[in-house]
């Protein structure tokens, strides 16, 4: 059953004590619930990501999406903010970790929080969800088609994303990976490498790679949307969070 919810834009403390914008949705319940930090995709803090945030609340989780482009583009439309962030080479890893850490602390401080918090990210946010889980104490993490987890961005790229392989020993929680078989960033070969590394390290993880799906198969407002993969992926998310975010 979907719960009623309340959603609002507010400010939270992020990296370096900076005040950053965030979109917060909470289920209208008095029962203790887990929390989810939603890490938006490269195209930014947009309507689609806010819908995802509300979806988590309607399913019974506190949910917050920090605007990772708050600093370089305060008040700008999501596409303009994303263009600026792209021109600047993306979000620095250290800043991302600070912002997600601030968002997680905000969720844990809510009256109805059961103290458990997960991260989930899409596209560039998928890599950032893994990065957050390797840098912060989280209870679960979901990587939806994040690239550059096991390899660096090419030298000619303005983005400076480094492989997270050397951080994987610090992975603090179970990881759910949801990928498209037709994606190249990350390719199935790259997610196989990640799987092998996690196995070698004895980490708890679960990967699903969907046929007939490429990058961004969860995005209902884009031609990349794939109904079957998205529905199956959502089902895996509810099962995963049901296991690791409840008391």
């Amino acid at each position: 059953m979907l719960l009623d919810l309340r959603a609002e834009t507010l400010s939270i403390e992020g990296f370096n004590g900076d005040s950053i914008e965030a979109y917060f949705a909470q289920p209208l319940t008095t029962d203790p619930v887990g929390g989810v930090v939603v890490i938006h995709h490269l195209p930014g803090y947009d309507k689609a990501t806010k819908e995802i945030t509300r979806r988590f609340a309607s399913e019974g989780y506190l949910a917050i999406c920090p605007n990772l482009y708050s600093r370089e583009a305060p008040g700008a439309s999501p596409d303009d903010a994303a263009a600026t962030a792209r021109a600047n080479g993306g979000v620095p890893d250290e800043r991302l970790v600070g912002d997600v850490g601030g968002a997680a602390a905000f969720l844990r401080s809510r009256d109805i929080s059961n103290g458990k918090v997960a991260s989930i990210g899409y596209c560039s946010g998928g890599r950032q969800s893994v990065l957050a889980a390797c840098s912060l104490n989280l209870d679960a993490a979901v990587d939806c088609y994040g690239a550059f987890v096991v390899m660096d961005t090419p030298e000619e790229s303005p983005f400076r994303f480094r492989s997270l392989v050397d951080k994987l020993p610090n992975l603090s929680c179970p990881l759910l990976g949801l990928f498209g078989a037709e994606d190249q960033y990350p390719s199935p070969e790259q997610t196989d490498i990640l799987e092998a590394k996690l196995k070698e390290l004895g980490k708890t993880f679960e990967f699903h790679t969907y046929e007939n799906a490429g990058h961004a198969f969860f995005a209902p407002d884009r031609p990349s949307y794939r109904t079957e993969a998205a529905n199956e992926g959502w089902a895996e998310i509810w099962k995963f969070f049901g296991t690791y975010l409840t008391n």
């Binding site: 490269l42 596209c123 690239a147 550059f148 790229s157 303005p158 190249q184 490429g214 990058h215």
Partner: peptide, 9 residues
């Protein structure tokens, strides 16, 4: 896929 490539001018 996200290509992450950008040419700056």
């Amino acid at each position: 896929m996200c290509t992450y490539q950008t040419e700056h001018l």
